[in-house]
Each structure stands twice: as structure tokens, then as C-alpha cells.
């Protein structure tokens, strides 16, 4: 798999779930790519550098999401 193919897979899968979920654990992304974690990490890091994905952190746990996706207010019907 090359980077473009990986990006396409991730973007398509995340957009499909965008209505219900905007933040994903690293393992979820590795499963989408069907790669071992270390191989998946290279693709996912490149997507962060390319600003396709962005990190989200609670301080103790990290997650990934499509850049700009998922505002809590929208999720709770306040927008």
C-alpha cells in the first residue's frame, strides 16, 4: 500500500462514520488500513503532517480525527 492509497482508505472510512463519530483510536485506524501498528503508524503520521488528520488528546489518551471534524456542540444539537 502506498501513502495515497492509505490516505484514501482512512478518509473514506472516517467520512462514512462522520455522523456518529469524529475521533478514533490509533488501533481503529490501523484496522482500517489492515496493517500492523508499526506500519500503520508511518502512514498515519504522514497524514498528520499533511494535515489530513489531527491529534486530539484528553491529556491521558490520544485520538485522531479528520482535520476540523467534530465539534461537541454540534453533537449535542446546539449548532
Amino acid at each position: 500500500m502506498d501513502q495515497a492509497e492509505a490516505t484514501e482508505k482512512i478518509v473514506a472510512a472516517l467520512k462514512k462514520k462522520a455522523k456518529t463519530k469524529s475521533k478514533f483510536y490509533f488501533n481503529d485506524l490501523a484496522k482500517i488500513l489492515d496493517e500492523k501498528p508499526r506500519a500503520a503508524k508511518k502512514f498515519i503520521n504522514a497524514m498528520v503532517i499533511d494535515e489530513v488528520l489531527e491529534y486530539w488528546s484528553s491529556g491521558s489518551t490520544s485520538m485522531y480525527g479528520l482535520k476540523g471534524a467534530g465539534k461537541q456542540s454540534a453533537g449535542e444539537g446546539e449548532d
Binding site: 486530539w56 491529556g59 490520544s62
Partner: peptide, 17 residues
């Protein structure tokens, strides 16, 4: 409010929103 997308470019840790 705890957590968020803030950080420094390329780093996924070290900053707690």
C-alpha cells in the same frame, strides 16, 4: 473543559488543552 486538539506541529503530546 479538558482536552482538545491543541499541540505543537508534528507532536501528539506534551500539551494538554
Amino acid at each position: 473543559k479538558h482536552g482538545g486538539i491543541v499541540g505543537v506541529f508534528g507532536y501528539g503530546g506534551g500539551v494538554i488543552g
